[in-house]
Amino acid sequence: MQLDQIDRQIINSLQEGFPVTEQPYAEVAERLSLSESELIARLERLLADRVLTRFGPMFQAEKLGGAFTLVAMSVRDDDFERVADIVNSFPEVAHNYEREHHFNMWFVVATDNPKRINDVLTEIELDSGYSCYNMPKQDEYFVKLKLVV
């Protein structure tokens, strides 16, 4: 989809935050010289067109008792589709990428309970017949979380 200058301004501005006040859209709209209803309509469209995945809070999952890990697998090329179907069928698998490497499958497992991570990985190993290489985060370096468009 085509983004115009106003869409870009909205995206750039709202990557920096959104007010927690009574009329937050009116506040942001004023800053961008838009009307409140135009801002809301454009956000609706950007979400419907899936330029934005979501509009709302970003959580620090660990504070909520949730757990994440990154998992790598090295899957035979002729077996890749079967294994991808198995891995993707787990609701705890948040996203999964095929990458160019000997380790060619990389996915994130997110659970509401840290103990559940090991269970999920064991189930995936049993169902797929491949080993899971578990690479949990040990430290995080904070990024800007802003992509200028």
């Binding site: 983004l3 990557q15 899936r50 330029v51 970003m58 620090q60 992509l147």
Partner: peptide, 28 residues
Amino acid sequence: VLARLAGLQQQGVIKRMGVIVRHRELGY
């Protein structure tokens, strides 16, 4: 609601409010 959200942000439970972009759809 406003007070609790401010509290959740202060505790770091909410990292920030705002939009989450899809890189691919934005030309990346």
